[in-house]
Nucleic acid binder design. Structure first.
Length: 467
RNA sequence: GCUCCGGUGGUGUAGUCCGGUUAAGCAUAGCGGCCUCUCGAGCCGUUGAUCCCGGGUUCAAAUCCCGGCCGGAGCACCA
């Protein structure tokens, strides 16, 4: 079994690419086959070196390991040869009609005069595409079936002229194949057995097989699956690019985005993505899985490896009377995994979250987690509380911070609501965290107790991965 | 508009090709309980689907056939 993942290097890889790459790799692995990574770079107008690299490093992060990496643009000579064979088999013709005319004829299902030219003449016209005709003056079209119900069969374009510089090939070529022509041939000659693509290509299957038929090439089995996209988190450049250009989001790694860069920065693990993709199954049903499902998987993996720290949102000071003389306390970094300890300095002042204070009133007794119990005496700007003992009781337990440092936590919300950009999609929460956070390296994962799993983005700035 | 593809508990799916010991498995969410200090994590338990609707074939249908409804995709000199 040989599968292939054929991205066009025209943008940053996202969760949709991850699905295609992982499915192809997993199937190949399952049958001890091979995976080919093929850059489908046949439109120099859209491709950039930057994107080849982004895809490569995205795949590397996902731990998808292709057995072979190639570019369609490396096979141009071969593709030209097949074009000639097709022409000789009376399977293609050069069309010099205007674009609108072609479109209209396809809609109506009628042929133009170019279609009737004899093979020798077509061959001459084909040669002219390389050195005489200009962009938009001539294309090579497949002789399909103009009356087919499947409009992709109505003499689709096989080659067109594009003078732009190609990121890998430079100015070496200007007659470029379309996806419809290149993909089946590439798949076939690379011995791909199972060509899995997302289902928007479904109507092109007839064409795919027709081309291979006319060329007498081996036919891979084409299988399709549904596209992956999260609700309110579009994947298309059409939706995302304007947001970046308008600076509504910070860049391609903004934690609100479904790009691999963003998912990584947000704290999603590559193994979670793989497990998630696999849990979706191989189906054509179009559904938008909830992001919370990815979170649930990620949480299970994160839980045993994330140290627990205290963080209080919107801190409010608490002064404690009758406090036992304690200089510091040593706390475990994880309830049941051996992730070390930390020492917290104490005096009779500490902070709790305003959110917790909301649920309290004077006279209430609460447990400061891992510390002791206090009773609220008064609340006026600051809280006065009295030490009431150490015994574990069924009273509210809340986290606290002593001598903390101020940090920001970025919280990504749904990017689009009702198809409109959500202006409040990025919330910044301020609060105090234990000073231990200053000893963490960027990228460290923690669980702020009763708040959520977070990842340290840069000094004193965290991103909420999920609850 | 035309063509194609889908439709299983709140959500995501398994099962559909080769119709029968599963009148529907798993996960997630929900709910409840536990917890050697997180009632926003963890652990345990539990409620949810007559398998889009109608008809047909059959001893037997989520699974096959027909009709309908709803949703998505394609109709580029993009991939």
């Amino acid at each position: 079994m040989i599968t292939r993942f054929p991205p066009e290097p025209n943008g940053y890889p996202h969760i949709g690419h991850a699905k295609a790459a992982i499915i192809n790799e997993e199937y190949a692995k399952m049958y001890k086959g091979k995976l080919i990574l093929r850059f489908d770079d046949t439109n120099p107008l859209k491709e950039r070196i930057e994107y080849y690299d982004a895809i490569l490093s995205g795949l590397n992060w996902l731990e998808v390991k292709p057995d072979l990496i190639k570019n369609t643009s490396d096979d141009m000579k071969m593709l030209y040869d097949y074009a000639k064979i097709l022409i000789k088999n009376d399977g293609a013709y050069v069309c010099k009609c205007k674009q609108e005319e072609i479109k209209e004829n396809r809609r109506l299902g009628i042929a133009c005069k170019c279609r009737g030219r004899d093979i020798d003449r077509t061959m001459i016209e084909w040669d002219k595409m390389f050195n005489e005709y200009k962009e938009n003056q001539a294309i090579l079209r497949f002789k399909g079936d103009l009356s087919s119900d499947n409009t992709t069969m109505r003499d689709p374009t096989l080659f067109r002229i594009i003078d732009a510089e190609h990121p890998k090939q430079g100015k070496r070529y200007r007659v470029w194949p379309t996806y419809d022509f290149a993909a089946p041939i590439e798949d076939s000659i690379d011995n791909v057995t199972h060509a899995m693509r997302s289902k928007e290509y479904e109507l092109r299957n007839d064409l795919y097989y027709a081309i291979l038929d006319r060329l007498g090439l081996r036919k891979p089995l084409v299988i399709e699956f549904s596209r992956l996209e999260f609700d309110g988190m579009p994947v298309s450049k059409r939706m995302l690019k304007p947001l970046i250009e308008a600076k509504k989001v910070q860049g391609w790694d903004d934690p609100r985005l479904p790009t691999l860069l963003a998912l990584k920065r947000r704290g999603i693990l590559p193994s979670s993505i793989r497990e998630f993709v696999l849990s979706l199954g191989f189906t054509k049903a179009d559904t938008k899985p909830p992001f919370t499902k990815l979170e649930a998987i990620n949480r299970k993996i994160l839980d045993p490896i994330s140290i627990r720290l205290f963080f209080v949102k919107d801190p409010i000071k608490m002064k404690i009377d009758d406090m036992p003389s304690m200089i510091s306390i040593r706390l475990k970094n994880h309830p049941d995994k051996d992730l070390g300890y930390r020492e917290i300095k104490l005096d009779n002042e500490l902070y709790i979250s305003s959110d917790d204070l909301c649920n309290l009133k004077i006279g209430d007794e609460i447990r400061l987690l891992e510390l002791f119990n206090v009773k609220i005496d008064s609340i006026d700007g600051i809280i006065h509380a009295k030490y009431t003992g150490n015994e574990l009781k069924q009273i509210p337990r809340i986290q606290w911070v002593s001598k903390g440092v101020e940090i920001n936590v970025l919280v990504a919300k749904q990017l689009y609501l009702d198809n409109k950009f959500n202006e409040n999609s990025l919330e910044v929460i301020k609060g105090y965290a234990e000073e231990y956070v200053d000893r963490l390296e960027n990228g460290s994962r923690v669980q702020f107790v009763r708040f959520g799993f977070c990842i340290l983005d840069e000094a004193r700035k965290f991103i909420l991965t999920h609850k």
